[in-house]
Simulated assay, not measured.
Amino acid sequence: MIFIIPKEIASENKLWKSIYIKDFVAIIGTLFFAWITSASIYKGLVLFYYIFLLSICIILISKSTKNPNKRVWQSVAILFMRSNRTYHSVNFEVRDNVQE
């Protein structure tokens, strides 16, 4: 009996063209958050509030150009969660300055 082994098991499910299910849920969640909190926003600015939150959401869920296989929100989280007190040694070879 021959088994077919998939090459990629962590693929994301697409909902439509370049919209993934996780992205769609994030957008719907952002719009729901905007709807809930829009009562505390000045009436003349509610439309701009929706546009602002939606644009921030789209920017954060887009794929990062600097970190492959990561989203922008993941890159931002890594930036804020890293410890500046952690030092990593740099490997280099020390040579004697002996003239032959």
Score class of each variant (00 low, 15 high):
residue 3 F to D: 09
residue 74 Q to G: 03
residue 96 D to L: 14
residue 58 I to Q: 00
residue 50 Y to P: 00
residue 48 F to V: 07
residue 30 T to L: 03
residue 6 P to Y: 04
residue 63 K to V: 06
residue 87 Y to D: 04
residue 84 N to E: 13
residue 33 F to L: 15
residue 84 N to K: 14
residue 24 F to I: 02
residue 47 L to I: 15
residue 23 D to E: 15
residue 48 F to L: 14
residue 36 I to N: 08
residue 74 Q to E: 15
residue 61 I to H: 01
residue 10 A to I: 12
residue 42 Y to R: 08
residue 91 N to C: 08
residue 82 R to G: 00
residue 78 I to S: 15
residue 50 Y to V: 02
residue 59 I to F: 04
residue 69 N to E: 11
residue 40 S to N: 11
residue 81 M to S: 15
residue 64 S to Y: 02
residue 96 D to T: 13
residue 94 V to Y: 08
residue 28 I to Q: 05
residue 81 M to I: 14
residue 64 S to N: 07
residue 6 P to T: 04
residue 100 E to M: 11
residue 81 M to L: 15
residue 26 A to N: 06
residue 98 V to Y: 06
residue 21 I to Q: 11
residue 35 W to D: 06
residue 48 F to P: 01
residue 45 L to E: 05
residue 63 K to S: 07
residue 58 I to C: 05
residue 4 I to K: 05
residue 63 K to D: 07
residue 25 V to K: 14
residue 28 I to D: 03
residue 72 V to N: 02
residue 52 F to T: 11
residue 55 S to L: 13
residue 67 N to W: 14
residue 49 Y to W: 15
residue 29 G to W: 02
residue 51 I to V: 15
residue 42 Y to K: 09
residue 29 G to M: 05
residue 34 A to H: 07
residue 83 S to N: 13
residue 61 I to L: 01
residue 29 G to I: 04
residue 89 S to E: 11
residue 89 S to F: 12
residue 20 Y to K: 05
residue 60 L to K: 01
residue 71 R to V: 05
residue 100 E to Q: 12
residue 97 N to T: 12
residue 40 S to G: 10
residue 13 N to T: 15
residue 59 I to N: 01
residue 86 T to N: 10
residue 66 K to W: 09
residue 72 V to E: 01
residue 43 K to D: 05
residue 16 W to F: 15
residue 81 M to F: 14
residue 92 F to G: 00
residue 44 G to R: 04
residue 53 L to S: 02
residue 45 L to D: 05
residue 58 I to T: 05
residue 78 I to T: 13
residue 34 A to S: 15
residue 53 L to P: 02
residue 69 N to P: 01
residue 96 D to G: 13
residue 22 K to S: 14
residue 97 N to W: 07
residue 9 I to C: 08
residue 82 R to P: 01
residue 5 I to R: 11
residue 4 I to V: 09
residue 80 F to T: 07
residue 16 W to E: 09
residue 89 S to Y: 09
residue 26 A to R: 04
residue 5 I to D: 12
residue 30 T to C: 12
residue 55 S to G: 10
residue 84 N to T: 10
residue 86 T to G: 03
residue 14 K to L: 08
residue 74 Q to L: 03
residue 25 V to G: 03
residue 32 F to L: 15
residue 97 N to K: 12
